[in-house]
Design a protein around this nucleic acid. Structure first.
Length: 479
DNA sequence: TGATTATTTGT
DNA sequence: CAAATAATC
């Protein structure tokens, strides 16, 4: 190494687009060497799942926010594109890096990539280190008495809670070392974000996303603050009412690591210091479901394509017609709660969890469509589309997953609508053509002459489709 | 983190 | 006979 050019540190950011509680970044800052912070758009490594449309939109804005935050701290975000192993290797050589740091991820193809970088670094005398940042309970640390992974959520989460408290979050470094420069004083060259074309155009469907969300760390902290000061205390009941802001809406921020689960955990602890209300425990268990889903993906890297329960390979899914699938996707099934949810998804990139269950159950049970069709649509349209939670929860609804919903649990979209949207606030927000119907009639518009305004007739009858689903599941059970 | 139907309870 | 409870899918 040239004595005139000190070696540098490389921090590789992935699904951890934050300065707060970022162990890799904090470690890099403490080393004091010139620091390169890089994000790699990797659509080339084998098995790595390409982002959907909504997450691409989110990523663009999140990276914009991250770049500004890094610059404010004296650093700079470098963007490069390609197979990550090659990109990181080349960048390390180019910048004379002595150390490469990152926060761990848990998907199969991603772990192979990271292991490849670690092996290369070891062979070439570089130090490579990874950190725990994105899961509070890493999959291999939560084991049953027999030493295997948990297959049921409740004992999984109990085992997590019985262990030691998640570590305290790290504060964001106030200053970061400037990047290393070449002989001309220039930092490494990277891509312009716009050249990645992550934003939709022709048509630009992102208007509703932009008015709903503020991607980036500041937006994540705002959501957390709003939640702690508002719905958190009544989360247990409020979370089930889609017409009310009763949930945290932190999911896309967690998806991109704009806020750390450790930060959320301890913020809850501080806000409710003495004997947290039961509602806070329920919210905390939702963080637990996220951890459980990642543990499932860690153990089952094919979770998005293979039935977790192999007996479901024999299940007689019915391929929906193009018209049926389109009706579901576009919110024209004739069932108001399902349609409101699907339109909320299309317009805002997000759907209330209660409605997700109802909409997913409708596709998988009333239409008997393969859960992978729904998973793929959600992957493309959700801003919180997560490689673990999305397939795990679809399999949960289908009955093919871990700790799955029993086959006979079939949501009735009308019953759910009456029960959780009694005042029809949610229905009226997303189904303006039904807003004239009263609170009783709006849940079943086909009965009240409510179809005049162009709202569709139900595409399938509930009693028949329910019976068909029960028979089909029964046949699987009988072998 | 169901729905439906049968049965029992309470007024 | 409405409402809670249980049994069944």
């Amino acid at each position: 190494m040239d004595s005139g050019s000190p070696s540098s540190t490389l921090v590789w950011l992935r699904d951890d687009l934050r300065l707060d509680d970022n162990p890799a970044l904090s470690e890099a800052a403490s080393l004091g060497q010139p620091l390169i912070v890089v994000y790699v758009l990797d659509e080339d490594s084998p098995g790595v799942r390409p982002l959907g449309g909504a997450t691409k939109w989110w990523l663009h804005h999140s990276l914009t926010d991250l770049a500004a935050a890094l610059e404010a701290a004296g650093s700079r975000l470098l963007l490069r594109r390609g197979p990550a192993t090659d990109i990181i290797r080349d960048l390390a050589l180019e910048t004379g890096a002595s150390t490469v740091l990152w926060n761990r991820r848990y998907g199969g193809p991603e772990r192979r990539v990271d292991a490849g970088v670690k092996d290369w670094a070891a062979e070439h005398g570089l130090k490579a280190a990874s950190f725990q940042a994105n899961l509070m309970f890493e999959p291999w640390t939560v084991r049953t008495g027999a030493g295997g992974p948990y297959k049921v959520f409740t004992p999984f989460w109990r085992a997590c809670l019985d262990g030691s408290e998640p570590r305290l979050p790290l504060d964001a470094p106030e200053r970061l070392p400037a990047p290393s420069t070449d002989a001309g004083g220039r930092p490494p060259a990277g891509d312009a974000l716009d050249s990645w074309r992550l934003l939709p155009r022709r048509p630009d469907w992102s208007g509703g996303l932009a008015t709903t969300w503020q991607p980036g760390e500041a937006g994540a902290w705002q959501r957390l603050a709003d939640f702690l000061d508002g719905p958190a205390e009544d989360y247990g009941t409020g979370r089930d009412v889609p017409g009310v802001e009763g949930t945290s809406r932190l999911s896309p921020h967690l998806r991109f690591g704009e806020i750390s689960p450790f930060r959320i955990w301890h913020a809850l602890r501080e806000r409710f210091p003495h004997s947290a209300p039961a509602d806070v425990g329920i919210f905390r268990s939702e963080l637990g479901w996220r951890e459980f889903c990642w543990q499932l993906l860690y153990e089952n890297p094919q979770l998005a394509t293979r039935n977790y329960r192999p007996e479901f390979d024999r299940f007689a899914w019915q391929a929906p017609s193009n018209a049926e699938l389109a009706a579901w996707q576009q919110g024209r099934t004739g069932y108001p709660l399902v349609d409101a949810g699907m339109r909320q998804l299309w317009q805002t990139g997000w759907m209330h969890n209660r409605v997700r269950m109802a909409a997913a159950s409708f596709l998988v049970k009333n239409l008997l469509a393969d859960w992978r069709l729904g998973e793929a649509w959600f992957w493309d349209t959700l801003v919180d589309a997560d490689a673990a939670s999305n397939p795990a929860n679809w399999q949960w609804v289908a009955g093919s997953g871990a700790d799955a919903s029993p086959y006979f649990r079939i949501f009735n979209p009308v019953t759910q609508s009456r029960k959780f949207d009694a005042g029809a606030r949610y229905l009226r927000e997303y189904l303006p053509e039904l807003s004239g119907l009263d609170d009783k009639a709006i849940h079943e518009p086909w009965k009240a002459g409510g179809l005049a305004a162009g709202y569709p007739e139900p595409i399938v009858g509930l009693p028949e489709s329910r019976a068909r689903a029960l028979e089909t599941y029964q046949r699987l059970k009988d072998g």
